[in-house]
Write a protein that binds this DNA or RNA. Structure first.
Length: 827
DNA sequence: GATTGGCGGGG
DNA sequence: GTGTACGCCAATC
């Protein structure tokens, strides 16, 4: 009986059944049931392009390869008109019986001299299926299908037809988990040490049915009993039973997504190792397949039919570059993305308490649950971005989770090839990669600032500079140095060589990048006009931006299929051209240029009006091609640039601006970095504030003198002179012992267990010994003890001297005890 | 400077 | 699974 089934695909794999590859699409139906849909209508293939005028089809069709008593052969061939990097080619589509036959056949034809090239022989079968059938995971499809008998945990259907119904996406059922293990020496040894606790958390209730009125699901399994009131704690009798509970919970909860923090490399491999010890089968897959742990350079863990999401990986790669923290442990990441949520539990005690004081285990159960709660919340927070990337790139969450930006760009392009009849270029081989790695080229242009205090600074920047250049100048491999435009197309202003790009037909990459940019612009318009669904739309526009911005890097990435050094060079060359063009035009127009870096330029009004500025920008914009646009970023009533450590010119990326709305924008100064005492950061920020807001040098100087005086008179509390430094490795591994290492050593001697990653707080106290011997724990000292001179000379003054240099003061002026009449007269 | 080695995340 | 793998920082010559 043929039924119509509406479902959202979540995971895809394939299996060989009766000598035929069968695609397995796992998903959830619109009435909220897990399902498996089979499709045996998809054939493996790859392309060959023969040399002109050579007929190779007959020869291809005769290929037979024997290996391990299996025969791989070409089932049929098909002549197709395609394009390769923009040029028309006559290609042959070579079909095989099984996906694994493709590399075998390719091996045979690899050295055929009658072939121009062999392509798309390394695209995984299930991904190839998603591309060719235009299936975008998480969006709604309807299958015409009939029941099929296959051993599985969910109903199985065989599809006759699958078509897309819409682009709305599933709201996935997410279950997060976390384990705690016995680890007496802080080392991680799954062969030796048992799992002692296991926590689950979900915002969805345990029962899959009720959509409304959902109560969060909380559970902690532990195999030692103790007295507790916690209702989420469930005792089991052994580690083996705990592992069984892990399986059972997933089977009854039926999540679409199982999420953990570093679970690819820790929790799931650990569970698998322990399960093997007890000979417990980890057949978690919806088709009863085993949990698969792939230990290569990076370990991955996969469950068929259930999306295993390692949120650590995603956050580190996608959010990492824009985050403040440089440590990616759960504490730091949750702290920044979710707001403070520190647990005050010392994990080093766990093993001892487990052995000797199980009555104290309760707080560890809370800790365990809290970690899975944080993991859940992080996943929830990232979900809109993940879903958007899935929709843009067209791969499963599992794949998108584990890909870097260059791979995301590449799969986005691969997904688009059929729409342009393009054949994808091959990945570079080893030698090619080595060659590419050696290539370097010029980046953005920097106009170094003259140190100084300035008024009425106008900032402009090119919106999405590199993406719009690629689009507007038609930069791509297929349009590079085309014969049709030789001598007529404008040449790229690169110093060393001469490139041009076709002006007659738009290229594959430029077309796609412009699509991404315009899609993003439309979304930003909607966000501006209404604030409904803001978070979702914002995730969408941000994903589009992330992807568009990655194209330029992709073109210059050594592993890229669509690699082109010329294109990458052309992109930065045009970038330098356009920013230098603004600088020149600004100067010609009577503006003073202060600073510029890659895509932004800082000007002073210099007697001109805001209207003059608008006219200036308008004029520039009418002359810009395509989607390029110079955006007015803002007017800043005051700003300061300071000198670099060396040289007379100003430091790059180090300045402070006062916005019209009164907020301070501080870039590159110590005030925005950690590792400095609060008093140094606070004073620096306050001084910038006084200078920019009040324009009063004397007041700033007076303020600093007061702080220095307060330090000397011990009126600054101890908390403000504490210095925080993160311990990077084991104490014994440090060859040069900084003050934080000495303090850490003393903490250990005191019986406090700390290791790499710990944040060490210390205060430098008075004395004549070397610094590290004078570094003390904050709770060991009072105001009387800290070394005022150290804080004045090594913290406060270094944070300020470059700023005061701009104002015409020297270091000595800061340290003068009495204000001098002579100097006062100076202003 | 180039090159190599180790480590992050997890307990 | 038609695969392929990271990327940064510190120490070292």
């Amino acid at each position: 009986m043929v039924e119509k089934i509406q479902f959202y695909p979540l995971d895809v794999t394939y299996k060989v059944i009766d000598g035929k590859p069968v695609i397995h699409l796992f998903g959830r139906t619109t009435d909220n049931k897990q399902i498996l849909i089979l499709d045996d209508s998809f054939e493996p293939y790859f392309y060959v392009v023969p040399k002109k005028g050579v007929d190779v089809r007959e020869k291809l069709e005769k290929i037979e390869v024997e290996r391990d008593d299996k025969t791989a052969k070409v089932t049929r061939t098909e002549a197709v008109n395609k394009k390769f990097l923009g040029n028309d080619v006559q290609a042959i589509k070579v079909y095989t019986q099984l996906p694994g036959d493709v590399p075998m056949i390719r091996e045979v034809v690899k050295d055929w001299e009658i072939l121009e090239g062999i392509y798309e022989y390394d695209i995984m079968f299930s991904r190839r299926y998603l591309i060719d059938r235009k299936i975008v995971p998480l969006t709604l499809y309807e299958a015409e299908a009939e029941h099929y008998t296959l051993r599985a945990k969910v109903p199985v259907f065989k599809a006759l037809k699958i078509e897309q119904l819409g682009t709305e996406t599933i709201k996935p059922r997410i279950l997060s988990f976390d384990i705690e293990t016995y680890s007496p020496s802080r080392s991680i040894e799954p062969e030796k040490n048992p799992i002692i606790m296991l926590a689950f958390y979900s915002g969805n209730s345990a029962k899959a049915k009720s959509q409304k009125d959902e109560k969060p699901f909380k559970k902690v399994f532990v195999w030692k009993k103790f007295k507790t009131e916690l209702d989420f704690v469930e005792f089991v009798n052994s580690e083996a039973e705990l592992i069984e509970k892990f399986k059972e919970t997933i089977e009854t909860f039926k999540p679409d997504i199982l999420t953990g923090y570093f679970s690819d490399g820790f929790d799931l491999p650990y569970i698998k190792t322990r399960a093997e010890k007890y000979k417990i089968s980890m057949d978690l897959g919806l088709d009863y397949s085993e949990l698969r742990v792939n230990k290569q350079k990076v370990t991955t863990s996969r469950i068929r039919g259930i999306t295993h999401l390692d949120i650590f990986k995603f956050i580190k790669r996608v959010m990492g570059p824009t985050m403040k923290t440089d440590a990616f442990n759960l504490d730091a990441v949750a702290g920044e993305l979710l707001g403070g949520s520190k647990h005050d539990v010392d994990l080093d005690e766990l093993s001892e308490i487990w052995d000797k004081h199980p009555e104290k285990l309760e707080k560890f159960c809370n800790y365990n649950l809290n970690d899975s709660l944080l993991t859940y919340k992080l996943t929830q927070k990232m979900m809109p971005t993940i879903i958007e990337l899935v929709k843009i790139v067209g791969l499963t969450i599992y794949d998108v989770n584990r890909m870097g930006f260059s791979q995301l760009v590449e799969w986005f392009l691969l997904k688009q090839t059929p729409n342009f009849d393009e054949i994808a270029p091959n990945k570079p081989g080893y030698n090619e990669i080595q060659n590419r790695r050696l290539q370097t080229y010029k980046g953005g242009f920097v106009y170094e600032p003259h140190p100084g205090l300035y008024k009425n600074i106008v900032v402009f920047d090119y919106r999405s500079l590199y993406p719009t250049i690629i689009g507007s100048h038609n930069i791509g491999i297929g349009t590079l140095n085309c014969e049709c435009c030789e001598g007529t197309a404008k040449k790229t202003p690169a110093e060393d060589e001469e490139y041009w790009f076709c002006t007659k037909r738009k290229g594959f990459i430029p077309t796609l990048i412009e699509e991404l940019i315009t899609r993003r612009m439309r979304i930003k318009e909607i966000i501006k006009s209404e604030d409904a669904k803001y978070a979702l739309l914002d995730a969408r526009q941000n994903s589009l931006k992330l992807l568009a911005n990655s194209f330029y890097g992709y073109l210059g990435f050594f592993g890229a299929r669509w690699y082109s050094l010329e294109c990458a060079k052309a992109t930065t060359a045009w970038g330098r051209f356009y920013i230098q063009d603004v600088i020149k035009k600004a100067e010609d127009g009577g503006f003073k240029v202060l600073y510029s870096d890659t895509d932004s330029v800082f000007l002073t009004l210099d007697g001109k009006t805001k209207e003059d500025v608008n006219k200036f920008a308008e004029k520039i914009n009418t002359e810009l091609p395509g989607l390029m646009e110079l955006e007015y970023e803002g007017l800043y009533p005051a700003g300061i640039f300071v000198s670099a450590k060396m040289g007379v010119l100003g430091a790059k990326k180090k300045y402070a601006l006062l916005s019209e709305d009164g907020t301070l924008k501080i870039k590159g100064f110590e005030a925005v970095r950690r590792n400095w005492s609060f008093i140094a950061k606070e004073t620096q920020e306050k001084v910038l504030d006084i200078i920019l807001r009040d324009g009063d040098k004397k007041k700033a100087l007076k303020y600093v003198k007061k702080i220095i005086n307060d330090l000397r008179e011990k009126r600054i509390p101890v908390e403000k002179v504490v210095i925080h430094t993160q311990l990077q490795k084991e104490i014994s591994d440090y060859t040069s012992k900084g003050p934080h290492v000495a303090v850490a050593q003393r903490m250990i001697n005191r019986g406090i267990k700390i290791g790499p990653g710990a944040l060490i707080k210390f205060v430098v106290t008075q004395g004549s010994d070397i610094i590290r011997n004078r570094a003390k724990l904050p709770d060991e000292v009072t105001e009387e003890d800290y070394d005022s001179d150290y804080y004045v000379n090594n913290q406060v003054v270094p944070a300020l001297d470059k700023i005061f240099e701009v104002l015409g003061y020297s270091k000595d002026d800061l340290l003068e005890h009495k204000e001098q009449k002579k100097l006062e007269g100076f202003f």
